[in-house]
Structures are given as structure tokens and as C-alpha cells.
């Protein structure tokens, strides 16, 4: 009987891509996405490290090759392995996963700005007719200089249950399925006890009826920008009290000057009255 140790090695061995005859040499396995396994590899011709993704069909590589955006990992090369599997070589992203970065980013506006950067490549892909279908923190990398890269494009219809729009179960999706997933990610970004307008933004993004969600990631991002600028948020009907608080937050300097002026006036009136 094969031991557990040998079985583990055989499983790894059977999955390893045979890259003999190519310019790449596998160094290590670095991840596993919805569509395949990602390896760290050396490009011996150019003397650089790349990420090689091996998948069962070429859909993802074709999808990726058509998307050129700073927030989408560029594909360098693609090919077919001797066993028929497809692979593509892409830029090796050096950075950390979104969930790891969020743990180290306590300041809410900073977290929201990272979130806005996720919306940009997703909106770009939608404009090219591509829906991600599996947006989640583990598919989003934040680079050393704060750049955000969205990975794992071209996944099949099945997403990750925790982030999946209800309509994805039936397979018929458009960009609003990604808006739903972005709402789920935003929920993580803002945390519990979030301000009411932010919670309303999340709720609108995650409406079970796609028609009631934001039309796209940019509209969602615009509402976040409005909240950051102390402006009204389209997803939230605010009370008079909330409006006053928002006005106060937005015009802090003006209010401070006004209060200082009033205090000064009071002092002068009091002084002259003596």
C-alpha cells in the first residue's frame, strides 16, 4: 500500500506541469485559484521570476490577454503542456492579499481608498464585456506601492458561495454580479459598526435583485467618494440630524471660525457691559 507521504508526493507530481522544452523552470507552488494552480517559475531566457498558471482550458488566458489595465496582471506568454493543459506566464505580483493588507490598515479612509482601486479594473473589464464572477479578498493583491491587482479572471460561472450573487446559481450573470461581490468585500472593508451611509452602500450593492444594485463598480465607488468627501450618498436617505452632522464634518474650519467669532463677540459684549 502506498503510504500517505508517497501519496502526497504522487499527487503533487501528477499535477506538476511538464515545462521541459519551454523557457520556464518551476520553482515552487504558490497558490491555487478557482481555475488552476499557480507556480513560481524562472524565465531562464530573460532571467526573471514569473507566475505560471496551469489551467484546464485557455479561457482565462484569452480573457486576460484582452485586458490591459494597471489593475489587471499582464500576461507575458501562453502555451499548451504535453498533456493538453494550458498554461500562461504572467507578471509575478509581489505584495499581499487584500485580507492581509486590511488587517494592517486600521484607518477607514485608507481602507476605502484601497477598495476604490479594486472598482477601477473591474469597471474597465466590464467595459470590455468581461465579468469576473469570483471577486473575493484572496483574488485581490495589494502591491508594495499600494497598487491593487485583481487576479483570477475568466473563472467559470461558479463563484465562491460567500461572495456569490444569488443569480449566479442559475448561471445567467452580468457585471452586477461583480457589484454584489464588491458589496461583500466592502462589508469586510468597513467592518461592523460602520457609519449608516456606508452600511447603506453595502446594502444597495448586495441587493438580491440585480436591478436594484448599483449599475456598475464606478457608481459604487462614486458613492464611497461622496462619503469620504462628506457629501450625500445616493444609497442613503439621511435624517435632518445626520445632515447637520455631515454639514458640520464638511465645514469644520468654517464652524470653528464662526464659534470663535461668537465667543469673541460675547467677550466684547460682556466687557462693554461692565
Amino acid at each position: 500500500m502506498i503510504s500517505d507521504k508517497v501519496l502526497a508526493r504522487l499527487k503533487t507530481a501528477a499535477e506538476l506541469p511538464d515545462l521541459s522544452g519551454t523557457r520556464y523552470r518551476i520553482v515552487d507552488q504558490i497558490g491555487r485559484g478557482g481555475m488552476g494552480v499557480v507556480y513560481l517559475a524562472d524565465d531562464v531566457e530573460l532571467g526573471r521570476s514569473v507566475a505560471i498558471k496551469v489551467l484546464d482550458d485557455a479561457q482565462e488566458a484569452r480573457v486576460l490577454a484582452g485586458l490591459e489595465h494597471p489593475g489587471i496582471v499582464p500576461v507575458h506568454d501562453a502555451g499548451v503542456l504535453p498533456d493538453g493543459r494550458r498554461y500562461y506566464a504572467m507578471k509575478l505580483v509581489r505584495g499581499a492579499r487584500l485580507d492581509v493588507v486590511l488587517e494592517k490598515t486600521p484607518h477607514l479612509p485608507d481602507r476605502l481608498r484601497i477598495f476604490q482601486k479594486i472598482c477601477e479594473p473591474v469597471a474597465f473589464a466590464h467595459s470590455r464585456g468581461v465579468v469576473h464572477r469570483d471577486l473575493k479578498p484572496s483574488n485581490i493583491m495589494v502591491g508594495e506601492f499600494g497598487e491593487v491587482l485583481v487576479l483570477d479572471w475568466g473563472a467559470p460561472g461558479v463563484g465562491t458561495p460567500q461572495f456569490m450573487a444569488p443569480e449566479q446559481a442559475s448561471g445567467e450573470v452580468d457585471g452586477r454580479a461583480d457589484v454584489f461581490a464588491l458589496g461583500k468585500i466592502l462589508e469586510i472593508v468597513i467592518g461592523i459598526n460602520a457609519a449608516k451611509p456606508l452600511a447603506s452602500i453595502c446594502r444597495r450593492a448586495m441587493e438580491s435583485d440585480p436591478a436594484r444594485r448599483y449599475a456598475g463598480p464606478l457608481e459604487l465607488s462614486a458613492d464611497i467618494a461622496a462619503w469620504l468627501d462628506h457629501m450625500p450618498v445616493s444609497a442613503h436617505r439621511e435624517s435632518v440630524g445626520e445632515r447637520l452632522v455631515r454639514f458640520g464634518s464638511r465645514n469644520r474650519t468654517l464652524l470653528a471660525l464662526l464659534v470663535a467669532y461668537l465667543i469673541l463677540r460675547l467677550i466684547v459684549i460682556f466687557w462693554l457691559g461692565r
Binding site: L10, A13, E15, L16, D18
Partner: peptide, 14 residues
């Protein structure tokens, strides 16, 4: 050795 292993692994996978 590398080539023999690669061919055996490829066939094993199949």
C-alpha cells in the same frame, strides 16, 4: 532523470 520523471508523471496523470 528529469526527462524520465516528467514522462512518467505525465503518463501517471493521464
Amino acid at each position: 532523470v528529469t526527462n524520465y520523471l516528467a514522462s512518467a508523471r505525465r503518463e501517471l496523470r493521464k
